[in-house]
Write a protein that binds this DNA or RNA. Structure first.
Length: 468
DNA sequence: TGAAATGTTGGGGCG
DNA sequence: ACGCCCCAACATTTC
């Protein structure tokens, strides 16, 4: 009888450069590619329809890729602790292989599984596992720059290190599978087709743009970023594939400026690894301030203000455009993420966890480590955090990073005819200008929810309380 | 991976 | 020609 192993797919929806799959294939003749739709995850308030739709589409793409190699994706719904033993006995599998996941939820789940079944966790979610990048005394880094230096000093993965996709996958016949749920109805303008092939296409396209990344990455009105985050989130692309591409762009750069630009993108990848390491070594950050003194923070937590922020109705065009980009497309430009996060936490004095949860509910790329790290950074309560007095001015940020107002107009059609000079301060339009633009402030578009200068002073006072 | 307040400098208008 | 003032423009410090 053929030996069998389960490849338990979680956040590694790819056949190329997949250490868990490779380990399963080398351990046994037959492999059961299994995805378990866990109701505890699906119904969590950290998950939303956007990301579920992307996941289900990704599973369909993975199933097709497996099918073309003679395999099959087995899908089950239920608690992994119940599904895995049942499938192991039905298939005769002697071992389970899966990619390690740093989130506290995943680690608890995997520990319970490993207590009952032979579960082998492999690296793969990051270029280097969290225990590989440590200070000389063995403790984890809590500041990004030294972390990134240590990361860059480790032997870089080479193109030849990337694991090839198996040509053929043999799955034991006759295993019952459930259908992949139809993706929930979503707005049509979600510009992220799921799947490994699409991820690779995007990476190849971005390799041609990486040398300009440093110049255009902050421009919200341009497509200067890689837009790979949803694919990295679900492992449709491995971090090693991304890092190899970044390194080769740096080496092939014709000018120092081009090399620097690609290095900036490599640093963005390292931020992902940094926050994975933080979540792994300090799991309490998932629910708590990394800096305990922020437990005293006098949040205002005004429900109506939070609702206005969520709906993109704060009266500040950059904020509202970004929030609608998030809810309508499942993604937000990174610069915009910093601006809206700063606004929620500082202008509105709302607990960063509220914003963190809302992001998780809407982002295709919503990742516990990166999202939590970003929010704690903005709130100033995290590792290597932004200083408390760094308060983004939404008007200036708009003028700098959306200079023609094209980003604002794209997501806020009610401002389509506002003159560019006032696109980031539409409340400054005279009654005549409002009429000409077909946009009456307070009717077609809200007046500012808070006054910038007053909100800034209130935030400084609140943060001073924590500091002292 | 800011912004505002405050300080400094230098050119030009003007008596 | 000179001093005075104004105020960009830039630099520094403060939050």
């Amino acid at each position: 009888m053929a030996t069998t192993a389960i490849w338990w797919v979680r956040r590694d929806l790819r056949l190329t450069d997949n250490p868990a799959l490779t380990a399963a294939l080398s351990a046994s003749e037959q492999v059961v590619p299994l995805y378990i739709i866990d109701p505890a995850l699906v119904n969590s308030d950290y998950v939303g329809a956007n990301r579920l739709a992307f996941l289900y589409d990704g599973l369909r793409a993975l199933a097709a890729d497996l099918h073309s190699r003679g395999g099959q994706l087995i899908v089950r719904r239920g608690d992994p602790l119940a599904v895995l033993p049942e499938l192991a006995s039905a298939s005769g599998a002697a071992a389970i292989f899966a990619e390690a996941d740093v989130s506290p939820f995943a680690r608890r789940r995997d520990a319970r599984v490993a207590a009952r079944l032979p579960l082998h966790l492999t690296a793969g979610a990051s270029v280097f596992p969290p225990d590989a990048v440590l200070k000389a005394d063995g403790t984890p880094y809590t500041v990004f720059t030294p972390f990134s230096k240590a990361w860059k000093a480790l032997p870089a993965p080479q193109p030849a290190d990337l694991l090839a996709a198996p040509a053929q996958i043999s799955v034991p016949p006759g295993l019952p599978t459930e259908s992949i749920p139809a993706a929930p109805a979503l707005p049509k303008d979600i510009p992220f087709p799921a799947g490994e092939a699409e991820a690779r296409r995007r990476l190849e396209k971005f390799e041609g743009q990486m040398q300009q990344y440093g110049d255009v990455r902050d421009r919200m009105d341009l497509n200067g970023t890689s837009r790979l985050s949803p694919y990295l989130r679900f492992g449709m692309l491995s971090m090693r594939q991304a890092a190899v591409a970044a390194r080769s762009a740096i080496e092939a750069a014709p000018t120092p400026a081009a090399a620097k630009s690609a290095t900036v993108w490599l640093n963005e990848l390292i931020w992902r690894e940094f926050y994975q390491s933080i979540l792994y070594h300090f799991p309490r950050v998932r629910t708590s301030n990394f800096q305990p003194k922020f437990n005293r923070m006098p949040w205002a937590n005004n429900q109506a203000h939070f609702a206005a922020w969520c709906q993109g109705r704060t009266g500040y065009p950059v904020i509202d455009a970004a929030m609608r980009q998030l809810t309508h497309s499942g993604w937000m430009h990174n610069r915009a993420r910093m601006i809206v996060a700063s606004f929620l936490v500082k202008h509105l004095l709302i607990d960063w966890r509220w914003g963190e949860r809302f992001f998780m509910q809407h982002l295709l790329d919503g990742d516990p480590a990166a999202n939590n790290g970003g929010w704690q950074w903005t709130a100033g309560c995290g590792t290597d955090a932004a200083p408390y007095f760094r308060i983004f001015n939404p008007i200036l940020q708009g003028k700098k990073f959306d200079p023609h107002g094209n980003y604002v107009r794209r997501w806020l059609p009610e401002l389509a005819h506002v003159p560019t000079a006032l696109i980031h301060t539409p409340w400054e339009m005279s009654p005549l200008e409002q009429q000409a633009a077909g946009c009456r402030i307070g009717q077609h578009y809200p007046a500012p929810l808070v006054d910038h200068s007053r909100a800034r002073n209130r935030a400084l006072a609140a943060y001073n309380q924590v500091k002292g």
